[in-house]
């Protein structure tokens, strides 16, 4: 045991020496043990992909002296992750990769007693817009045709999504309210399953992040009708926004790294520095482009303000769904 320890210390010292001119000495705080890198969703989804991508960039460029250990804690729509962070014994070594259940789950499950404003903002890696898709065989090519079709079907139009209270259901609920639509909503347990059942025409339409539908879009199977971003998206320049249709609504999935409540300022500064570098890296920038994510860089104060408005917005949107 002693031998291995000494061996690893030697290795670490060697690495430290080798990288000395670049990084060292500039930072006072360094992680002392492996970092718990909790993922708010199960394996394979968008948050999971991002966590593992970030981990790979950190590893490939030797950005941290201790490893990030990704663990999926998707239970209870992210409730498991939120509680894990809230009760973290070692706040300085506990991070989480989020999606919007960061906002919705504490509202929908008040019993958890989670107050996200106590969490520590680290880095906003980007935001994921939503798009309304139909299958090409439906013959629908515009949002107006979609509206006409849904009204004609009178309650029999079927859309799939990832579940009541999830991001896409919020968008669909808003859209239904704004245009007076009666839609049959089928919940699935993941974006992949939804995309598959749209491809197989088990359902008629869906609202998804572009990454989840991209393959089918490129093959010509899926047709985008409307985007829910503030401006038209570069990837789909001909697809109108919800705002152009006269409703001031946009919706994004947050892709952020968040620290446990009570993390020390030194540790938070260290992580902001590291993930800031990841964000700037060419790898991440090309990931943003290829997966159609929008950049939304923010500092700590801006992030806190953003959280507060998001919580207020979600509270309103969710009360409309459940109400």
């Amino acid at each position: 045991m002693k031998l291995t320890k000494r061996f690893f210390l030697g290795m670490a010292a060697g690495t430290a020496l080798a990288t000395l001119p670049i990084s060292a000495l500039a930072q006072e705080w360094q992680p002392k043990r492996p970092i718990d890198f909790t993922i708010m969703a199960g394996p394979g989804g968008g948050a999971d992909q991002i966590a593992r991508f970030v981990q790979s960039v950190v590893e490939a460029n030797d950005m941290m002296s201790r490893p990030l250990v990704p663990t999926n804690r998707g239970g209870g729509s992210g409730a498991e992750s939120l509680l894990h962070l809230k009760d973290a014994r070692d706040a300085d070594h506990t991070l989480m990769v989020t999606l919007n259940s960061f906002y919705t789950t504490p509202i929908r499950q008040e019993g958890l007693g989670v107050d996200i404003e106590a969490f520590t903002p680290i880095t906003m890696m980007g935001v994921d817009p939503f798009v309304l898709w139909v299958h090409k065989d439906s013959g629908i090519t515009t949002f107006e045709e979609f509206i006409a079709k849904v009204k004609e079907m009178d309650g029999e139009y079927v859309m799939g999504g990832t579940g009541t209270g999830q991001e896409d259901s919020i968008v669909i609920a808003y859209m239904s309210g704004a245009f007076g639509l009666d839609i049959k909503y089928i919940p699935y347990d993941g974006g992949g399953a939804v995309a598959k059942d749209l491809a197989g025409q088990q359902i008629m339409a869906t609202v998804n992040n572009p990454a989840e539908a991209k393959g089918f879009y490129e093959a010509g199977d899926f047709v985008p009708l409307l985007v829910f971003s503030d401006e038209r998206m570069e990837t789909f320049p001909d697809v109108p926004t919800m705002k152009e249709k006269g409703h001031d609504f946009s919706y994004y999935n947050q892709r952020a790294i968040v620290g446990a409540p009570g993390m020390s300022d030194e540790a938070a500064a260290y992580y902001r520095d590291v993930f800031g570098k990841v964000y700037e890296s060419e790898d991440w920038q090309s990931y943003l482009t290829s997966e159609s994510l929008s950049p939304l860089p923010m500092d700590e104060a801006q992030t806190r303000a953003y959280w507060a408005t998001q919580v207020a917005n979600h509270r309103k949107l969710l009360s409309e769904i459940d109400g």
Partner: peptide, 16 residues
């Protein structure tokens, strides 16, 4: 599911 995540990270677009 994890392999798919890997493919995205390697810069491939899974799909038809």
């Amino acid at each position: 599911a994890i392999l798919l995540g890997g493919m995205v990270i390697w810069g491939l677009t899974p799909g038809p």
